[in-house]
Design a binder for these strands. Structure first.
Lengths: 228, 228
DNA sequence: CGCGCGCTTGACTAACTTCAAAGATGGTGG
DNA sequence: CCACCATCTTTGAAGTTAGTCAAGCGCGCG
């Protein structure tokens, strides 16, 4: 039944496993069915509660998914990077607003075509399932992060997460703003900035530019992230 | 494809819909396949990373699912109340430790029997799917709660959530301790207690006993919870 | 080259936590 | 059945972390 009772939230983000996105590409067959869409910075892919007609896969750039409280407070539930699949979590309506963080290209698939391929090609179906499971586990990790980790622990966890998802061990590109990161980690922009500055002053990371960090001592960063 | 790409975290907790648990009971056929288990207060149902052999349904009492950081900090990812189904989120291993909050009885099913019934009985399969989707949406709401809500907003949200899941509009029973609630909401026991005291002093709730609260002004409680 | 936006940094404030003690609660055994 | 004890809850006061407000810097774009 797990084989037909799976749902998902987000791309694979659990740090323990190799990124799902780097596995051999079962999406190849699907790609022929999708259409490429170019998005300007801040362009909206879909709004929360829009009818969920499409799935998307990020090709270049980055997408953020957000929820809002009545008074405008924002929470960024996930960043989607190249290779990540968006929309698996939607039932009939999208649960978030999705926006391009930078100039971004995505492939857009109709739900119909994805569903058909999943039905026809078991490997592809299982692959989606695997993405879903990792996304679920990632969401659970995020609950612990938001509920119980300190600012610096959250930042360290975030950096390692992004690094692993990029397949990079050293140099990490952060396309999103400090405000975006803060809204993802339940912090303010200033706290994110201070946290990065502090990690830098300790020699754990280096800031090559404000959107490019280098991990200088991964062991220490992991210790901080895992609250050892 | 959503029909065979669903996974789950937790019972239905989104406040907008009627509780799934109160729908006509497609579990009847399954119940014959399960065995009843009685649990003492604090008894462990399963540990995180145990091989996931069983699903459970709470009959009476309450179960909490927890994750721990290396230094012992705890996060309670969910409370499961009578009618709630536990274990749908597990792939091959459980993602949490599950413990009885009070004296509790559960029905235990083998994964095999649940999977067989889901395959054989489409209504049952769809029901599980529906539980899964609501659980997912609930988890997303929790991310916003932990990331962006204040202590009092979290407490108000929690009370309304529990009330709705019990099918009660007024009198809510809270079987778990203040510490359990705190670990669920990302707060300390003391902050939970102060929050409840404050809501009481404002006349929004009444505390009939420390584990029994009465909602006296639901409109105000909802305003607080939704950060209007 | 200069302008604007985002990032950094500092000083202060607010919210929540921590530490501590007193007050309820409920379960148990005499 | 009641009294006692352990445990949980409430409340107070002090301490910490992160948030707010504000100013200056620097990068990238026009």
């Amino acid at each position: 039944m797990p084989a037909n009772l799976q749902l998902q939230i987000a791309p694979s983000t659990s740090r323990a496993q190799p990124p799902v996105r780097k596995a051999p590409d079962e999406f190849a067959a699907l790609d022929r069915l999708g259409s490429v869409v170019s998005l300007q910075r801040e362009a909206v892919l879909f709004h929360e509660s829009d009818s969920a007609e499409h799935y998307f896969k990020v090709v270049t750039g980055a997408v953020r998914c957000c929820k809002f409280l009545a008074d405008g407070r924002r929470h960024v539930s996930e960043f989607y990077l190249p290779g990540d699949f968006i929309g698996l979590d939607a039932e009939s309506a999208y649960q978030f607003t999705a926006e391009a963080v930078t100039e971004t290209t995505v492939v857009r698939y109709t739900r119909r075509s994805v569903e058909a391929l999943a039905a026809q090609e078991p490997r592809f179906g299982r692959r989606l399932l695997s993405i879903a499971c990792h996304g679920l586990s990632a969401a659970q990790q995020k609950l612990v992060l938001l509920g119980r980790k300190t600012a610096e622990e959250r930042i360290a966890t975030f950096l390692l997460d992004i690094a692993d998802r990029c397949g990079e061990t050293e140099c990490v590109s952060l396309p999103m703003s400090r405000t975006d990161i803060g809204d993802h980690l339940g912090l303010t922009m200033e706290t994110v900035s201070r946290g990065l500055s502090h990690l830098k002053s300790e020699g754990v990371i280096a800031l090559e530019s404000s959107h490019k960090i280098r991990i200088r001592d991964r062991d220490v960063l992991e210790e901080i992230a895992d609250a050892a």
